[in-house]
């Protein structure tokens, strides 16, 4: 198949425009993070007057970024571990057993994805406040409340992805394990999980990204001590002065781990995405 020169030119133009559109903000983020403060407060220049790493040092003092980092890590980490474990058990049941209500369950799980967050934010806020009042268990303003909330955010998609991966693993492996005397749990942990490991890691990355980037619930359900990065990043301004270079440096440091993780595992995610899209 030879392509005409018109197609070739269309490709060049389109891909160039999309590249510029994609790269501009990334360039601004990176270049502003090494600019001195007066550079980011005056008119924008493409090249810094001089390059400095001070923003990467100062950003930890202007705002208690270290504490927010730890809060975000603890909350996202715990939410990820819990949701992946739950999704593994659920995915195993859905992939390997035909039980009453299976289809309804999967549809219901997926349909929670379409609910606007604002719909259950207000009741959840009230429920947390009232649980505290009647039982003394602090969920509002605590990391625990946020962990429980976040683990359910990643859960629907994680269940669909993991069930999809398990479906691709041949049943003959289960049969062989059963003949060897392994029970269902032993089969899951010793036979299926090792084969599905890349998929499980991809799901974990997805769950972590979901929790790491959440803003709405973090801004309502956290207090001064438990604030996460999503809320804390806004604090680099006082009396109309914004430390934009430190904001960009912090953004870079916050983004790098998840971007690298995502790009490393994107093909496993793509596989799961299309499996889900074609199935439904």
């Amino acid at each position: 198949m030879r392509e005409s020169s018109a197609v070739r030119w269309a490709r060049r133009v389109v891909l160039t425009l999309l590249t510029v559109f994609t790269v501009l903000p990334l360039y601004v983020m990176v270049v502003s993070s090494v600019k001195p403060l007066r550079d980011v407060q005056g008119a924008f220049h493409w090249i810094p007057t001089h390059v400095t790493v001070r923003p990467f040092v100062d950003m930890w003092h202007t705002v208690p970024l270290g504490r927010y980092f730890i809060n975000s890590l603890v909350v996202s980490g715990c939410a990820t571990v819990c949701s992946v474990i739950i999704a593994i058990f659920t995915g195993y049941a859905v992939s390997r057993y035909r039980f009453a209500g299976r289809g309804t369950f999967m549809t219901a799980v997926l349909s929670t994805q379409m609910f606007p967050g604002i719909l259950f934010l207000l009741p959840l806020f009230l429920i947390f406040v009232n649980i505290d009042r009647y039982t003394g268990i602090t969920l509002y303003g605590s990391r625990l409340g946020l962990i429980i909330t976040y683990l359910t955010f990643a859960l629907p998609f994680s269940i669909w992805l993991i069930a999809g991966y398990f479906d691709t693993i041949p049943r003959e492996l289960d049969e062989a394990a059963r003949v060897d005397g392994a029970g269902p749990m032993r089969t899951l942990f010793r036979v299926i999980l090792p084969v599905a490991a890349p998929g499980v890691v991809a799901v974990a990355i997805y769950a972590f990204m979901t929790a790491w980037g959440e803003v709405l619930f973090a801004s309502v359900l956290t207090d001064h001590a438990t604030r996460t990065l999503a809320v804390g990043l806004r604090e680099y301004s006082n009396q109309g002065q914004v430390y934009w270079n430190e904001v960009m440096a912090a953004s870079l440091v916050i983004s790098l781990p998840v971007v690298v993780g995502f790009l490393a595992l994107q093909r496993f995610l793509v596989h799961g995405l299309t499996a889900g899209a074609v199935k439904s």
């Binding site: 058990f89 259950f120 009741p123 359910t152």
Partner: peptide
């Protein structure tokens, strides 16, 4: 067994999505 395996996910979805929605 399958119901036991699905239970944690069911509880989590009920607690954070379904019940708050009804309360809302």
């Amino acid at each position: 067994l399958p119901y036991l395996l699905v239970l944690p996910a069911l509880i989590a979805e009920l607690a954070i999505h379904v019940i708050p929605m009804l309360v809302g």
